[in-house]
Design a protein around this nucleic acid. Structure first.
Lengths: 136, 136
DNA sequence: CAGCATCCTGAGCGATACTG
DNA sequence: CAGTATCGCTCAGGATGCTG
């Protein structure tokens, strides 16, 4: 396996330059930017939740998808899974210290979507407008 | 650093609370966090590129996938497509001002992957170790 | 060169049923 | 409650060929 590259003078460009084979960065990037990870982390950063509580927060997610996302995040050390001793089976998910370090970057991205959503919607409308016109 | 994010009482949680129906934020989030968008933006932030130049940067992407991603980003006003008059057909893609505002947030996420990749890999190894043991 | 159209395969998702 | 297991099926994505 390859260790990561020494030191890239340019910040992000490294991702697109060293592309000879599958970079771990790219894989990792895919993992954390998947459909639900951001939202799951957002929910658990607020407070730890149990499986079905979490499911209710993430409206639209299936049990299977949630389980998979949770496992993947747990495996990567971003979430912790803790079985609560009780009469009923109870499992609580929480964010690890490592996961906490992701909160900021994610907040930046999510903040962007909120801030610029109107601009983007407008751009999309304009684009569709133009497309429709030259269709005629 | 950043100047955004006034001091939202609830920073990211908004995304997981208002889930009655498809929120535009969620859709937008999916759009920009897809497999290639981050890398495309990274490449074009460095400098504008033509279609095949860009394709070469993003090793592994197919023509179809690249076209789709580019259209989507163009439609959202993040990229600009410009046909260069010449003897041969030439098209240059560049980042719009709106796209520039995404550079920071993306850099934060990408930076995280680089910084914490070792920690994540270690966590994954430990996880797999544990899993393998209780398999026996 | 920069795409669009078409065909095709399989990875992944949802639905359902079952378990500790 | 918190999952695992199985099965069908869709549809996103790759491969290929063609065009302005």
């Amino acid at each position: 396996m390859r260790k990561n590259s020494p030191e890239a003078a340019s910040p992000m460009e490294a991702a697109v330059e060293i592309d000879g084979d599958e970079k771990p960065d790219r894989l990792l990037l895919d993992q954390i930017t998947d459909k639900w990870s951001i939202l799951i982390l957002a929910a658990l950063c607020a407070k730890p939740l149990r499986f079905n509580e979490l499911r209710r927060c993430l409206d639209g997610i299936t049990q299977k998808a949630l389980t998979q996302s949770l496992r993947r995040l747990e495996r990567s050390g971003i979430l912790a899974r803790r079985v609560i001793p009780s009469s009923q089976v109870a499992v609580e998910y929480s964010v690890t210290p490592l996961g906490r370090t992701l909160e900021e970057p994610f907040r930046a991205v999510y903040g962007w979507t909120v801030q610029y959503a109107p601009a983007v919607l407008q751009a999309q409308a304009a684009f569709d407008q133009r497309a429709a016109e030259e269709e005629k």
